[in-house]
């Protein structure tokens, strides 16, 4: 009765029953095509990066990748940019996770006046395009003498509305009230209760928030481009400088993008499963 491609809606949480019909080529075919399309730009980047900069580029990787990579290191402060990006994204991630969890804990488990409206306010700020405020932000940074320093790109991102809301949603269910009561009975202060009861219980959600924050921070471009300069860039800003010369050497530029992409791909291979789970859980809960 059922067509192969028709099993779609029928088989929730696949594999739960032996009656489930495995999908055929009508499903796998388009999926394979989609994923090949998704992977192609990465492949292409490596192809160009590993050949000479020539008019008619070959379709297969060549042997010049390390030569081109060496030229990248000569052209932009690659290692400095990499280090800066790690410092910026690392600090931002640590801070967002810690501060968001703290605020999420208060919103989920503590009673205080104005809790409801304040939470609504936090969620509402999610829709505010704060990126449009970069002009005064830039003026303020110039005023404080922060322009060109990593602080300028770290401080505005130390906590996010998304993080607070995400952690709040998780903590509501994940931390039993009884545990908090017990800690309070033992005379723990609010902060100690948070540290010893809440924090250990929310590790999975905190880890997901950490991964997302790290990627968001790593990819941030407009504000770092405004706030930083070519001598002290993040990875993204350095890549832009690599591309903005008068003569564009594709092998050089794409060697740079390949080098900048490899770390992220490694992270994805290790944490991809968690990232997928995080997106899907967030979609249902949010």
């Amino acid at each position: 009765m059922l067509q192969k491609s028709d099993t779609a809606a029928r088989t929730r949480r696949g594999g739960s029953s032996s009656l489930v019909k495995r999908p055929g080529f009508a499903v796998y075919g388009p999926l394979i095509a989609f994923i090949l399309g998704s992977a192609f730009p990465f492949y292409w980047s490596f192809v160009v990066a590993s050949n000479d900069d020539a008019a008619d580029a070959p379709l297969l990787p060549g042997g010049k990748f390390f030569t081109n990579a060496a030229r990248v290191f000569d052209t932009i402060p690659f290692w400095k940019a990499l280090g800066n990006s790690i410092i910026v994204s690392g600090t931002v991630t640590l801070s967002v996770v810690l501060l968001s969890t703290l605020a999420g804990f208060a919103f989920a488990k503590l009673r205080f006046k104005g809790r409801g409206p304040l939470l609504v306010f936090v969620v509402a700020t999610l829709a505010v395009p704060t990126q449009l405020g970069i002009i005064p932000l830039y003026m303020a940074m110039a005023e404080f003498g922060w322009s060109g320093t990593l602080g300028a790109v770290i401080v505005p991102n130390l906590i996010t509305a998304f993080g607070v809301f995400w952690m709040r949603q998780y903590i509501v269910d994940a931390v039993p009230d009884e545990l908090i009561e017990a800690a309070r009975m033992d005379g723990c202060s609010m902060l100690r209760t948070f540290w010893h009861v809440c924090l250990p219980a929310v590790r999975p959600a905190a880890a997901m928030l950490g991964v997302f924050t790290f990627m968001m921070s790593w990819n941030d471009f407009l504000w770092p481009l405004v706030a930083l300069n070519a001598e002290n860039p993040t990875m993204q800003v350095a890549l832009e400088k690599l591309q903005s010369g008068y003569y564009v050497d594709n092998s050089l530029v794409l060697a740079g993008t390949t080098l900048a992409t490899v770390p992220i791909l490694l992270v994805f291979l290790v944490l991809g499963r968690q990232i997928v789970a995080g997106i899907m859980q967030g979609a249902v809960k949010g």
Partner: peptide, 23 residues
């Protein structure tokens, strides 16, 4: 499969824009 379709999302936007510019 899910990771496969998510691949583009994790890549650096700047790097990929440059790659697409080349393509």
């Amino acid at each position: 499969w899910r990771m496969g379709v998510l691949l583009p999302y994790v890549a650096s936007l700047v790097a990929l824009t440059i790659i697409f510019g080349d393509l």
